[in-house]
Write a protein that binds this DNA or RNA. Structure first.
Lengths: 249, 249
DNA sequence: CCATAAAACTGGTCAGACCAGTGGTGCTTT
DNA sequence: AAAGCACCACTGGTCTGACCAGTTTTATGG
């Protein structure tokens, strides 16, 4: 019985592919150098190069002489996204629809993240969490979003990552709406900070059910709060995502 | 002006690719050995191997140890579906990830559909439900999917509709997997029929919570059943959405 | 302080060696 | 003559170590 049908190069290729699909390696992120990969996998550089070549053929990475290899941008469907965006521009109420969906998906993401997050995930979640708290509460929409995204990626569910990243711009709208309308009011701000902390702790503690509850409660709270403000006659601010600004990683 | 950005390996890869596309190299035809190619192109064998690896990544050739490399059999251009989706579709385990997401989204959809469905929605849901039941239980994947879709549309949540329709091909895979593996076993088939009926009745009766419970239970049941079959050593059938077949509406 | 040269990266290519499957050729055995 | 077997000439798979060629960082000299 032959068992090892797979060549070393193919194995390395598949492992890296998996990391890309799962989201452990993000678009535009640099892949370790060939020599490093060779050392890590205990293989020769030639084999690593073949693995990377195959990934190039699959369109997953791009390699530049003297620079390195980088994960390709595989934008799901930009034109669909924009169509939906236009629709929503006309009907702000759609944002509530999105919040409904977010409640489910982020709840699921938090649940899975609590179960599956590895050390790297925990590091990024912690980093995002701390950056978000350190920033000015009135202008941290992007950091707020990054925190939520870090949790989604920690779920290691590629479908979830794909869906939520395809809704990135819409997500940013809801997050911005939350930040712009709720954070300036001290009571809301504190409440939201507590909710974030609850999510953070539950995920890092590996408490799946608690994480799910916290995440769903958080999203629902945002939606209901904004709805309430609107009902009370307050002017609710919806901010369109002009572009994806400042990429100052 | 530097023009030659192309590596030797890439150049060889492209030349062979052109031959395959032009038809100079026919499907199943054997490609000259690496050593021959190296001599012909005046390059080292390592470079030739990298070129062949890239062709493998592009799915144009297949290589067998001790035999040689052969041109793949392939459909002219199986319509560039989202590369990411096709990529994900290559990993059967991803289907479980999708089922996790489906459980949340379809639960939500059923919930909203029960609350919001109007007469027109009810008509379409009923029609889809009856068609599904009337069809051969072993070959009604498309109708099964249509039933679920009708409920999603009745949710009147454009975000939900958008997300689930963007996952159409993947959804079809899970539905097909369910139909192909579960329906032939009478016990499963009856169980699933009951679940469908429960969803149907709850939605039409406007019982939101019950509809949500039923839909989530249904999706979870499918996932767990397939997982169980797999664990018991049964051969589980995953059907790739090569094309969207017979559109004979 | 800034421009420039040198060093320390990165990927790209080469040569030659050896291992590991595959299949044919011809000899031995039955 | 037919079956078996060892051998050999292929095939791809991997390794090593060297060197070339872009890029980025660092140190150096003005």
């Amino acid at each position: 019985m032959s068992v090892n049908v797979t060549s070393i190069a193919r194995e390395i290729c598949d492992r890296i592919e998996r990391q890309i699909i799962e989201g452990s390696l993000l678009p535009d992120e640099q892949i370790p150098s060939e020599r490093q990969l060779a050392a890590r996998f205990g293989a020769s550089r030639a084999v690593v190069r073949e693995a990377l070549r195959e990934l190039q053929g699959r369109g997953l990475i791009e390699t530049r002489h003297g620079r390195g290899s980088f994960v390709s941008q595989m934008v799901p469907e930009p034109e669909e996204d924009s169509r939906l965006l236009r629709l929503i521009a006309g009907y702000p109420s759609t944002l509530y629809d999105l919040l409904e969906v977010r409640e489910q998906l982020e709840g699921q993401a938090a649940c899975l993240a609590a179960e599956r997050a590895n050390q790297r995930d925990r590091y990024f979640i912690t980093k995002a969490f701390e950056q978000m708290n350190a920033a000015d509460p009135r202008s941290n929409a992007r950091l707020d979003h990054a925190f939520h995204l870090a949790i989604v990626e920690a779920s290691h569910n590629p479908v979830l990552v794909h869906v939520l990243s395809s809704l990135k711009n819409l997500m940013l709208m809801t997050v911005r709406a939350s930040v712009a309308n709720l954070n300036p009011r001290e009571a809301f701000r504190q409440q939201i900070a507590r909710q974030h902390q609850r999510i953070y702790r539950a995920v890092l503690a590996g408490q799946a059910k608690a994480a799910k509850r916290a995440a769903m409660a958080h999203v629902r709270f945002v939606g209901e709060s904004i709805r309430q403000l609107e009902a009370e006659g307050h002017k609710v601010i919806w901010i369109n995502p002009q572009q994806t600004p400042d990429h100052h990683t």
